[in-house]
Amino acid sequence: MHKKKKGIGNGLVLWIIGIYLLFPLLLTFLYSLFTEWITILPEGFSLNGYAELFQDSYFWQSIGRSLLISIVPIVLCTVAVLLAMYVVVVYLPGLDKIMRTICTIPYAIQGVILPISVLGLYANAPEPFSNRVFMLVCTYCIVVLPYIYQGVRNNLNAVHAPRLLEAAQMLGAGKFYAFWKIILPNITSGIMVCGKLFPDRTDVSVLSHAPVGSACQRGYCGPVRRDAADFSGSFRTAER
C-alpha cells in the first residue's frame, strides 16, 4: 500500500514538471497553426506556414546541420574518452591524474576566450579546417570534453570498474572483452545523461550565433574568412 502511494506522488510531480516544460512548446505550436491571435481565441487556421517551411531546402539543411553539430561532437568525444579511459583503467591507473588535468583545461578557460581564440586559429586555415561545420564540430568537442570526461569517470568509479574487470577476468573474459561488454553497458545510461546535460554555456552560443550562424542561415558553410577574424577583433573592442 505504502509503495503505491509513493508511486502516485512521484507520478504527479513528473506530470506537473512535464506540463510546465511542454506548455510553451504547445502554445507556440498552436500559434503557428493560425494566422492571427490577437483576442482570446486565435483565428484563421492554416497549414500554409508549414507547407512553405517544409519545402524550403534551407530549412532541412539547417536542421541537418544542427543535428550534426550537436550529436557528432558528443559521440566523437565520448568514444575518444572511453578509449583513453580503457587504457587508464586497465593498464595505466597512474595516468588518471594527467587525464583529469588535461580534460578539465577547457572548463577552466573563460567562456568567451575559448571560442574567440578558436576562431582566430581557424580563420584562413586551409580546408577542411576552416570549414564552418568542421570547425564547429571540433570546437564543440573541446567544449564538451570536461563534461564527458567527468561523466565517464564518475560512472566508472560508481560501478567500481577495476573490481568488475578483475571478476570478469577470473571468469575467463579477456580485459578488452570485459571492458566493452561489462563495464560499458553499466555506464552507458550515465554517459547518456551526461551527453544530454551538455551545458548551455555562453561560449557555445557565442560561437554558433555570432559569425558562423549568420552565414549558415544564408546557406553559406564555406570557410571562415576575414569576417570571423574581424568579428573577434571587434568583440574585443566591444569588451573594452
Binding site: R163, A167, Q169, M170, G172, I182, P185
Partner: peptide, 20 residues
C-alpha cells in the same frame, strides 16, 4: 599464465557482481 587460463575461482570482499 593469464588469469583466465588458470582455472581458478575467486570470491571478492565486495562481491563484484555484474550489476546489469
Amino acid at each position: 599464465l593469464e588469469p583466465r587460463d588458470r582455472n581458478i575461482g575467486m570470491v571478492f570482499q565486495h562481491y563484484s557482481l555484474f550489476p546489469n
